[in-house]
Design a protein around this nucleic acid. Structure first.
Length: 573
RNA sequence: GGGGGUGUAGCUCAGUUGGUUAGAGCGAUCGCCUGUCACGCGAUAGGUCGCGGGUUCGAGUCCCGUCACUCCCGCCA
């Protein structure tokens, strides 16, 4: 049996060695009657050895139930060292946490450790399962180019200089978006790919810098609902197979964009969290509400929204003040609050701002917000965007404080009916809010292009536990319509022809209606492995600064290589 | 580009109000130990306290700068 020395327990005249391979740990044993004892005793941890010996049953009182092989052990008769080791920069046998720096530099050692080793195996099994399911659904897997052209919309591109075409550059694909549409135009009707995607944007805990993988899907002759059915099927099967957590609703709820922004303040709501936001702006126009700060702001166009917490009348003052303080730390003016109570057969508000609301006003608030006596309410007032943002975070914060999130649940949902366009805050101009290739909703011949902000798109997101897994859309396959929509966003016909020549050209020669989606594989594995950081499910990730500390990438390039590519470097002062 | 956190032995960390020779556990090396499975016991080695500057009689500790890692904002159609 061959493997790594995971751990030794040396009793002087009796030695136990835990031998580890990809499948687990087996205890090997030798005593001083064997002349090799002294040599084997000295072999350091993580050496790769081959032991010869007999497999023997362990005595009942020495069985180790923690090990799969705990009923047996190997009596060593001979050994061979297959791979020696220097002193280890980090211990493999340990549950300790280590700095990312050392883990990434010695990733091959880190990957030997049990938890991450299992995560990587899980990832492999998940991808294998997805392939089999997609093939079962009748999809074909195709590869698309890695060296392609830079696209004007979206994230920053990774660029690759072309030696044969001096001064020109390839871009690595941010996603195979245009190619998968071209595949549909080419007459293949169900495509998928475990596709590498490259975006030169800054990292987050759940976002690798550089590269990540999508389960890229596209289908022709379909409507939105057809894609939902495929994805719901796949995800239900996948998440049931690889996790014991329950799926909240196997038919994923569909929430419109405007509804999710009102009820959850975000387009990636965590539906495990029962708290909802409601709009109470109108209440502050009443004469029997005397909370002047909010009333003045509402007069000037601010909105008021609120979160109700159930049966929190007996929570200590510190519970409320902590949340208010938390909101102030976030840079807001805080969260005003009170608790509904019954006083002399009348509803009244107990708490710092309770006195500003008449019994009638309280009753109206309870009606709108679905609150009962004994519940509390937290108010935020300001510009719509700021209020949405703050209350979205407050939903998470309050739910955590109240411990009302069921960690044993996957709560999927679809966010649908995204607006086609939005106002760019900086420039004041109208821009595509999501994907410029999405199909607008409604009767296309009667589309009111004069009011672009009212146009909704067949554009959807799938969200699980507050994590955005993917966007998708039914595509616009009608060139005339595409020119019109691009014109609204400030691109003239020539511009569109230049930037999207491949696409526009292809759509002009008999394109089928089509649509798709591209769920993030890394994030799916994160959910299944219950990991908060994407590096825990990535074999060889880049660090936050997009460097590979093990391979020393990126690295300085020799002058002759640069010359070949016609590139001069600008010397930084 | 901006904000927060961290940086002390190979690894994980402690280090009081600025005060004698900077400590512990794991690992390494050496010795003892025949049923352990986080084996046990004893000893030894191991330090540019991230780096540079400053304040001070005296700095791991205070100040300024800088670097690295990380989390967040911006960014991510």
């Amino acid at each position: 049996m061959s493997g790594w020395i995971n751990k030794k327990r040396d009793h002087g005249n009796l030695l136990f060695i835990d031998l580890r391979d990809n499948y687990g740990i087996t205890q090997c044993v030798i005593d001083n009657k064997n002349p090799l004892f002294k040599k084997i005793e000295k072999i350091p941890l993580e050496t790769v050895v081959q032991f010869e010996g007999q497999v023997v049953e362990r005595k009942k009182d020495t069985v180790n139930k923690e090990l799969n092989s705990g009923e047996i052990e190997i009596k060593i008769t001979n050994f061979k060292i297959l791979g020696g080791t220097k002193e280890l920069p980090l211990p493999v046998f340990s549950d300790q946490e280590y700095s990312e720096e050392i883990r990434l530099k010695y990733r091959f050692l880190d990957l030997r450790r049990s938890k991450i080793h299992k995560n990587i195996i899980l990832r492999s099994n998940v991808i294998s399962f997805i392939r089999k399911e997609m093939e079962k659904f009748g999809f074909l897997e195709f590869q698309t180019p890695i060296l392609t052209s830079s696209s004007p919309e979206g994230a920053r591109d990774f660029l690759v200089p072309s030696r044969l075409n001096p001064g020109k550059f390839y871009a690595l694909p941010q996603a195979p978006q245009q190619f998968k549409q071209l595949i549909m135009v080419s007459g293949f009707d169900k495509y998928f790919q475990i596709a590498p995607c490259f975006r030169d944007e800054d990292a987050r805990a759940d976002r690798s810098p550089g590269e990540f993988y999508q389960l890229d899907i596209e289908m022709s002759f379909v409507e939105q609902e057809d894609i939902f059915i495929i994805v719901e099927n796949l995800f239900n099967n996948l998440f049931k197979k690889f996790s014991n957590k329950k799926i909240q609703k196997e038919e994923f709820p569909k929430i419109t964009f405007s509804e999710t922004m009102l009820k959850y303040g975000t387009d990636k709501p965590d539906l495990r969290n029962p708290l909802e936001i409601c709009d109470l702006t109108k209440i502050f126009e009443r004469d029997d509400v005397k909370f002047e700060i909010f009333k003045n702001l509402v007069n000037k166009g601010s909105i008021v929204r609120a979160i109700v917490t159930k049966k929190t009348k007996d929570k200590p003052r510190s519970f409320f003040d902590n949340i208010d303080k938390w909101a102030k730390d976030k840079g807001s003016s805080g969260l005003a609050y009170f608790t509904f109570e019954n006083k002399n057969d009348e509803v009244s508000g107990k708490g710092p701002i309770g006195k500003f609301f008449s019994p009638k006003a309280c009753e109206e608030i309870m009606k709108v917000s679905n609150a009962q006596i004994g519940d509390s309410i937290f108010f935020a007032c300001g510009q719509a965007k700021d209020v949405e943002k703050l209350l979205a975070l407050a939903r998470d914060k309050i739910a955590k404080d109240l411990d009302i999130i069921d960690e044993n649940l996957f709560a999927f949902c679809w966010i649908v009916d995204y607006p086609m366009f939005e106002n760019d805050e900086k420039s004041g101009k109208i821009k595509f809010s999501h994907n410029p290739f999405s199909m607008p909703q409604g009767n296309l011949s009667k589309l009111n292009l004069e009011r672009p902000l009212d146009i909704k798109a067949y554009q959807y997101d799938i969200v699980c536990n507050g994590i955005e897994l993917s966007s998708g859309a039914i595509r616009n396959h009608i060139p005339d319509l595409m020119y019109k929509l691009f014109a609204i966003a400030g691109y003239d016909k020539k511009n569109v022809d230049d930037k999207f020549s491949g696409m526009i050209n292809a759509l002009s020669y008999g394109a089928p209606p089509h649509g798709g989606i591209a769920p993030g594989v890394d994030r799916i594995v994160m959910l299944l492995a219950n990991e908060k950081n994407i590096r825990e499910v990535t074999m060889f990730p880049l660090n936050q600064n997009a460097q590979d500390l093990m391979m020393n990438a990126p690295s300085i390039i020799e002058d002759n290589q640069l010359k070949e590519l016609n590139i001069n470097l600008i010397k930084k002062k």
